[in-house]
Design a protein around this nucleic acid. Sequence first.
DNA 1: TTCTCTGCAAATAATTTGCACCCAT
DNA 2: ATGGGTGCAAATTATTTGCAGAGAA
Lengths: 140, 140
Amino acid sequence: MQLRMTNQREMILRELKKSKGHLTADELYERVRKSMPRISLATVYRNLEILSEAGIIRKLEISGRQKRFDYEVEDHDHIYCVECHRIENLQLDKSAMKVPTPETVKGYTITGCRLEVTGVCPKCQQKLAKKKKKKKKKKN
Amino acid sequence: MQLRMTNQREMILRELKKSKGHLTADELYERVRKSMPRISLATVYRNLEILSEAGIIRKLEISGRQKRFDYEVEDHDHIYCVECHRIENLQLDKSAMKVPTPETVKGYTITGCRLEVTGVCPKCQQKLAKKKKKKKKKKN
DNA sequence: TTCTCTGCAAATAATTTGCACCCAT
DNA sequence: ATGGGTGCAAATTATTTGCAGAGAA
């Protein structure tokens, strides 16, 4: 199965690269559409799947909600805000961490290992602080 | 908002506990249905969401399109088979690893940190080996 | 009694697929 | 010219929601 470089595919890659990462199929669709109005959402989905399978982009699978795709294939981890669902890159020196080896995970062939850190981003911390204040006021 | 302990809720918790973890709403629904045929899938969804918000069960934010829920709230990681999508628990000494601290992730309040290891489980390794053999035969 | 919870059905959201035509190689 | 790629619409899959009645506190 040969991969062909179509205009659509090129556009998708360019936008993904430009955006600096973590777009959903839908977000990407909206962007690509501006310069290629007749592209179909299905095409975006199909290509994201194909390109990530080919290792050209990376698929981030964070449970349940929408898949996100990332242009940078180099090794890095992510931090995920549980409030607003924003995802940011994380530069960690994984070589300094003790990471599972086949011996620690009996029988498995390990293909990847990444750290998912969850937290509350600065913006959401502010929002939450405000909410708490409001609640207090209501009670009184 | 008070939480009430209904039969449905009790059943869901019991089955989740019994199963030793990582069920999707749908899988859980099928199990609970055996002893409670009139339960609705919507109830399962609603309760999984509520119970995980209350900290009684855990929502796994890892790979896969469906959300999965876990009874064991204690800290542990998971390994995910990229072939059959099975998820198994992983006991790792995270204290021995250097794990992100607030200083490494500027501004974030860190709520969790989980290692997501992907790989191919023993069963799938066998399956894949068999497939390869078949392909070779076809070529000849 | 009060208010949360439930079942049902219908609505949304996210993604995939069938098909006929298009176009990169 | 061949076979992968595309757009469109329809189909699936996963999850959520409105509502009226049920049942835990």
